[in-house]
């Protein structure tokens, strides 16, 4: 498959301090890079101008889920074969993308999701580990699918998955919504071991306990009003 049929989507909100390094890495992959600048107020927009990428600007901050959906809509317009979700905060490693893509390219699954817990080399901080365990459990209640990791931003979707998923959760609840929609559309899901870089910056950007409560409330509301 031509690597230009593969679209790597990075939702970015105020990532100026790390974005240059992240982009320099992912660009080497040769995939089509799409950055959705989600209403950033720092120098994110300026940094983007220096790279051969597609820039999509949200005029206001909508959230990561909304930014990913905008990127996926763009990929659909461009008739992409595969879409990759990649966080712009530097927590993912660009060379993990190849492993993530393999089962999708081999036709083993429609949706490949990164899991930090399948890679024993990941030193997940204790508190984060407990939050993620709880999130994995709650996610399994909402989606009926038991995964080893929750809210891992590294995913690969084939064309079928790209056209089956339509994220309406603008913020972080999109990660659970995505799994739920995948199940409803009978998509084949596979988890792939990936590394996650824990720095002060990525820890700050990650989900806290309060954010988790907000996600649960959002999902509950959606269940009630569906």
């Amino acid at each position: 498959m031509n690597s230009k049929n593969i679209y790597l989507i990075l939702p970015a909100f105020n990532e100026a301090s790390v974005l240059e390094k992240v982009l320099a890495e992912v660009i080497k992959s040769g995939y089509h890079i799409v950055v959705v600048n989600d209403g950033s107020e720092d120098d994110t927009a300026k940094i983007l101008e220096h790279f051969p990428i597609t820039i999509i600007n949200h005029s206001i901050n909508l959230g990561q889920g909304a930014a990913l959906q905008t990127g996926m809509d763009w990929a659909k317009i461009k008739d992409a074969e595969i879409v990759i979700h990649f966080d712009a905060d530097g927590q993912h490693y660009a060379d993990d993308v190849e492993n993530l893509l393999k089962p999708v390219l081999d036709g083993e699954c429609d949706l490949a999701i990164g899991s930090r817990f399948l890679n024993s080399k990941n030193a997940v901080p204790f508190f984060r580990k407990q939050i993620l365990r709880m999130a994995t459990f709650i996610e399994s209640i909402f989606t009926g699918i038991k995964l080893t990791d929750a809210h891992n931003g590294l995913r690969a979707l084939n064309k079928k998955a790209l056209h089956s998923i339509q994220l309406s959760e603008n913020r972080m609840a999109h990660a659970t919504e995505l799994i739920s929609q995948a199940k409803r559309s009978n998509l084949r899901i596979k988890e792939v071991a990936v590394r996650v870089s824990y720095t002060n910056y990525t820890m700050q950007k990650g989900q806290g306990l309060l954010g988790g409560v907000h996600i649960i409330f959002n999902l509950l509301f959606k269940k009630i009003t569906k």
């Binding site: 790279f51 990428i53 597609t54 005029s59 206001i60 905008t70 763009w74 603008n170």
Partner: peptide, 19 residues
């Protein structure tokens, strides 16, 4: 929020540029 998202997205996709 849904309406604002749709509007913002439509606008963003129309203005998308390839550097």
């Amino acid at each position: 929020e849904r309406k604002i998202t749709e509007l913002t997205r439509k606008d963003a996709l129309r203005e998308a540029r390839e550097v």
